Simulated scan of single mutants.
Amino acid sequence: MRQAMNQKPDYEKELRKAGVRITRPRRIIIDILTSTEDHPDAMRIFHRAIEIDDSISLSTVYRTMNLLEEMGAIHRHAFNGGPSRFEQARGEHHDHLIDIDTGAVIEFQSGKIEKLQEEIARSLGYDIVHHRLELYGRKTDRSS
Rank of each mutant, 00 (worst) to 15 (best):
D99H: 14
A78M: 03
G91Q: 01
V105T: 11
M71E: 06
D99T: 12
G81W: 12
Q88D: 04
T102N: 05
I74P: 00
A89V: 00
H96E: 08
F86C: 03
P83C: 12
Q88S: 08
T102M: 02
A104F: 06
F79W: 06
E87R: 06
L67Y: 13
A73I: 03
L67C: 10
D101G: 12
D101Y: 11
G81L: 11
L68W: 07
H96P: 12
H93I: 00
E87F: 00
G72H: 07
H93C: 02
G72T: 10
D99G: 14
L97Q: 06
G81Q: 12
H75L: 13
A73N: 05
D101V: 07
I98V: 15
V105N: 07
I100V: 15
R76A: 13
E70N: 15
E107K: 09
H96Y: 05
V105K: 04
I100L: 14
L67D: 10
A73S: 12
L67H: 14
T102C: 04
H77K: 13
R76H: 10
L67T: 10
N66Q: 13
E87D: 06
H96L: 06
H93T: 04
E107N: 12
E69C: 08
E70K: 15
A89D: 02
P83D: 14
E70P: 07
F108K: 14
G72A: 11
H96D: 07
D101T: 09
L67E: 09
D95Q: 08
Q88V: 06
N66A: 13
F86W: 06
E69I: 06
H93A: 04
G81M: 11
F108M: 14
E70L: 09
R76Y: 06
H96V: 05
E107L: 04
H96N: 13
A104Y: 08
F86P: 03
A73E: 02
G81Y: 14
A73V: 03
V105F: 05
L97Y: 04
R76W: 03
N66I: 08
M71Q: 09
G81E: 11
F86M: 05
A89L: 01
F108G: 15
D95S: 14
D99L: 08
N80P: 00
A73F: 02
R76D: 05
D95R: 04
A89R: 02
D95V: 01
E92F: 07
L67W: 12
D101R: 08
F86I: 09
A73D: 01
H93Y: 03
N80F: 12
I100D: 12
M71C: 08
H75M: 13
F86N: 02
G91T: 01
G91P: 00
E70Q: 15
R90I: 05
G72K: 09
H77W: 09
N80I: 09
M71T: 07
R90D: 05
E87L: 03
R90F: 02
L97F: 01
E70H: 15
S84L: 06
E69W: 07
L97P: 05
E107R: 09
R76M: 12
S84M: 05
A89W: 01
A89P: 02
T102R: 03
L68Q: 07
H94E: 10
D95E: 10
A89C: 03
L68G: 05
R85E: 04
E107S: 11
E70G: 15
G91F: 00
L68M: 13
I106S: 10
A89Y: 03
A104H: 11
G82Y: 07
R85S: 04
A104T: 11
G103T: 02
F108P: 13
G103R: 03
G91I: 00
